[in-house]
Write a protein that binds this DNA or RNA. Sequence first.
DNA 1: TGCCGCCGGTACCGTTGGGGCATGGAGACG
DNA 2: CGTCTCCATGCCCCAACGGTACCGGCGGCA
Lengths: 282, 282
Amino acid sequence: METRELRYFVAVAEELHFGRAAQRLGIAQPPLSRAIAQLERRLGVALLERTSRAVALTEAGSVLLVEGRAALDAVEAAERRTRRAALAGAGQPGLVLVTKAGASGELLSKLLDAYASEPGAVPVDVLLCGVGEQERLLRDGRADVALLHRPFDSTVGLDSEELRTEGQVVVLPAGHPLTAQAQVRMADVAALPGLPPPRRPGPDGTYPDGPGPQIRDNAQLYQLIALGRASAVLPESCRADLRRDLAAVPVVDAPTVTTVIAWPPHSRSLALAGLIRTAIRL
Amino acid sequence: METRELRYFVAVAEELHFGRAAQRLGIAQPPLSRAIAQLERRLGVALLERTSRAVALTEAGSVLLVEGRAALDAVEAAERRTRRAALAGAGQPGLVLVTKAGASGELLSKLLDAYASEPGAVPVDVLLCGVGEQERLLRDGRADVALLHRPFDSTVGLDSEELRTEGQVVVLPAGHPLTAQAQVRMADVAALPGLPPPRRPGPDGTYPDGPGPQIRDNAQLYQLIALGRASAVLPESCRADLRRDLAAVPVVDAPTVTTVIAWPPHSRSLALAGLIRTAIRL
DNA sequence: TGCCGCCGGTACCGTTGGGGCATGGAGACG
DNA sequence: CGTCTCCATGCCCCAACGGTACCGGCGGCA
């Protein structure tokens, strides 16, 4: 199976429409039809159910969609990492670390400082991204290592080491009645009138239904909380860089959050190993 | 990057010889030279250092060898799993479980019995293989799930659940003086005259240097122990299917062995989920 | 030192097959 | 029943893959 065939199939499987898929791929529709038909012939498997009105995935087609995406990511990763390895000989890029915008800022800066002072350290680029994007970036080679937060992020398919575990706090506008308390419970937070938890985009970029404002990162969230439009339960390390107009109260029965450093399983890079060692020693 | 290019590069990188690689690929040498040159041009990266006498990998080439193998495995896995998914509609194959020959036999048979009596169970093929092959089989789609033994097997890049933890025993010929003791220590085993531990093949199929007989599976090992040519420290569950002419003595300070059930991280199969649930409940 | 053999690269050529355009054919809809 | 939508088919062209023949560099050997 060639990656071209896989790319074609994934496009059709995602669009469920040969015309649109062909447009997305920048080719005409007939060659696409033929390519898919040939793929099915070579596999000996029906991947799509076509009627003249609609296209649907077969059971085998769904499997190939999932597995094919993973395979394409792996090929892309191979290409990107090879390019980066060549540049690394020339000097510049080193490692790319990805983490969620506005999370673990203090831990991250400590880690970068500590690593930079190690002998043999290479330059580290920091990439900030939205929730759920990190895994993808690691898998397709755009990043080498990530700071993740369990249980929100999954470490499925990655190697990881735990760095720290912390409780959570509820973030509220300064002066909110609840901020007078030394601690609260999840039930208190859930009962806050007019302060629903925000909605974050899922892996596919869409937002779940329900109340609460849609947000993309913590800066947006803080602004909405300051405006009295939302509240949020966050790891307590967020207090280190909280705005002056917000306050945080520990939530005693919230699940603890574990910050982990994670990397693709078969990495062999010495620089990465050094960064991980530094992180564990922190 | 097309899989054809990757296959070609991996062949050359493994052989370090264009002629042999071409032969292995079933093509002539000139097209292979051209394909590699074109790959390097498209990537903008030198992958090989050629002299007229020898071919060597560059830094970037080593990266592409590792990453490319992983990518090719992922593509193969996509193909195999798609084919299997199509057959599963027709009924037969179900799941493929892989484990080391001669390990966890009792646990395995319990698991298979328990799963078979679940509602909605599918047929499970059992594949027995040598040490270190399981990870490969899971990654390239020839198997769906494996029983692994930490710390001997790595679960890098896989999802897993622990099933049981056990101590280890030393296996000796029946009647050996040490079998009179209720327990021994690692130092006692290491000091056994003329009974070195066996050597098992590594991931590349070669044996480490040193004393001790070369073995491929536990049946060979048992025969060598019975002949008085070797001894071995194994998980205590091996006692369940030990030959009559062998005896086992607990080793109190040997590392404990954890049997885990492991599967590729992005599996979405209901049948697999059922098998895993059954295993955890055992 | 000059010949030989090994090895990778280059030149050239035939053929495969991917892609474009035009068209066919089946089903939904008014 | 005409029309529209959408996937498949027929036909053509050309890029590119693979094969054969040959070149050039380099080490070994007499």
